[in-house]
Amino acid sequence: MPGTQGKSARLDRRRFLKRGLLGGGLLVCAGALPFAFRSTLRRQPRGPLRLLSDDEYAVLAAAAARLAPGDGAGPRWPTAEAVDCAGKIDALMAQVHADMGSDFRRLLRLFESGVVGAIVAGSPRPFTRASATDQDARLEAWRRSRFALLRSGYQAIKRLAQATYYSSPEIYALVGYPGPPEVPQLPQLPTSPTSPTIVPRVPG
């Protein structure tokens, strides 16, 4: 019955919006943390930032430093800073939908907040000024939180940092990956047209 379907669809959409509003609640709260960056320990980016502020960059760089291999890895392993994790993430996130970029910036504000740190992990210092042990505890608290939203926040930062770190060629040998092979010279295969070249149809 179309009528029933339509009503069901409206209800479903209403539920979705409600869930979406609640789901976005945590990030909305980030706006109520005006002092989150008051004492952020800044780091110098390598170049001009495209999306993040200096404070946001500093939080991301501090988190990436803990998400990448730490001191126990030994000197062979470059730091997250050495492969410019935060700078590469800034460049990437400058390209995504502006709304997604804004969410990411709010997430970094939450991550830095001492108030949030105190509530989530009993660590009241800004993330950038916390000890390495406290920073790991904060990441662990977000990661294992019973609140799905905190787990989402952890995954957002974790994935970006680790994807950036481990896709860097200087890491390949350290994880036993020899890198892309040489492309063999095969007989020329039919290819697609390249603008503005015209390539005749390839017999099927």
């Binding site: 803990r66 998400l67 990448a68 291999p69 730490g70 126990g72 890895a73 392993w77 790991d136 990441l139 990661r143 974790k158 994935r159 680790q162 994807a163 770190y165 481990y166 896709s167 890491i171 390949y172 350290l174 994880v175 036993g176 990956y177």
Partner: peptide, 21 residues
């Protein structure tokens, strides 16, 4: 490949690195 592997594997820091190795 390393990036997909890193995304899939749980944890962070040295525990994650030991899996990646």
């Amino acid at each position: 490949h390393p990036m997909l592997g890193a995304l899939a594997l749980p944890g962070f820091g040295d525990s994650h690195r030991r899996l990646m190795e």
